[in-house]
Computed example of a mutant assay.
Amino acid sequence: MSETSQTLPSAVPDAAPNQAAATPASVRTGPGWFARLAVVGVWVLLAALFAVLVPETFLTEGTFRVVFGSQQALVFLTAALLCTIVVGEFVDMSVASNFGLAAMLVAVLTVNHQWNVWAATAVAVAVSLAVGAVNGWLVVKVGVNTIVVTLGMGTFLLGIALWLGDLMPVSGLPSSFKHISLQPVLGLPISFFYGLALMGGFAYLLRYTPLGRNMRFVGENREVSRLAGIRVARVRLGAFTIAGLIAGIGGVLSAAATGGFDPNVSQSYLLPIFAATFLGTAVLQPGRFNPLGTLIAVYFLATGVLGLQLLGATSWVSNVFYGGVLVVAVTLSTVLHGRSR
């Protein structure tokens, strides 16, 4: 993919040098609080509706734990996707398969080949990191289209994961290993707080550090970024590499939580990943991809799907809900991005 300017519903750069000072206050005024928190309000109303309709099942500690304690795979996957989206690489279709490969490697090396679980973890994360680096090299250095590279890589990795497990789930990880993911802290598994730290740190990086501002700037306009002295290729390559690292860590945590992994599960995350990431552009920073908005979107979607299931909807409802939200979220992202300009 050539490093040319792109028009995408992605982040507006926080500031080019001296840009903010030259911008009139009326232009710099961002969306009001109503726009920033509208989705949060809908989330509250949705939860209130389910509480009225099915109070005996929705208003329970179990529901709270399911919504907030079982979404960490999605949190890590959306963070991985955000890494590349922020720098303008809009569709990374390989993060879910990379996640699944890491989870399978931990399970297969430990259970089937009697490796030490921590050695298997190190290998799994290293492989995911390498996959991200290869994706970046093919897209940035060779110039292959992002969709082609990541779709092909995702399919390839899925095949490898299926081969490793002989088309079957692999389970039997040491029971002590689950504590890295399920150790209770304040009533929730510790992986919930890993997700908060990951998204909080990512948000801080984008808003308050030169690297984060450079990532935003590259995502908005590569040619201008290059002229401004930003090492565009390095930023893009680094984004792919870190996306692979985050996906690998998420896969390891998922394997630890379940004691193994089913390689067929990873593809089921693709639709929720994109739905949450795009819905996040309507939260806190309308028109921008942002980690905290995405984090809120993850739990909004979890609440909606669980509530509908408690009302009696069957397994098809998640596809309908996630697909509908994705269409609405992309539409909102496009409209809000247009207004931000």
Rank of each mutant, 00 (worst) to 15 (best):
Q309L: 10
L301N: 06
P291Q: 03
R339P: 02
L311F: 02
S318Q: 15
L336T: 15
G324S: 05
A329C: 11
L336I: 02
V305E: 07
A329S: 11
L295N: 02
H337P: 03
S315Y: 11
V298R: 00
A313I: 01
L326H: 04
V325G: 04
F300D: 06
F321I: 01
F289D: 00
A313T: 11
F300W: 04
W316Q: 13
T314R: 13
A313S: 15
Y322W: 10
A297G: 10
Q309C: 02
L306T: 11
V335D: 00
L310Y: 08
L336D: 07
L326T: 01
P291K: 07
F300S: 06
V320T: 11
T334D: 13
S318D: 07
G307C: 06
A313D: 10
L295W: 00
L301D: 02
G324V: 03
V320W: 09
T314A: 13
V317G: 03
A329E: 02
L336N: 10
P291H: 12
L301H: 05
V305G: 04
T303Y: 01
L301K: 00
G293T: 04
L336A: 15
L310P: 01
Y322P: 02
R339F: 13
G312N: 08
G324H: 06
S333E: 03
S315D: 13
V298P: 02
V320H: 09
T314H: 14
P291T: 01
Y322N: 14
A329D: 01
F289V: 09
F300L: 12
N319H: 12
L326I: 04
F321D: 01
L295C: 04
T303V: 12
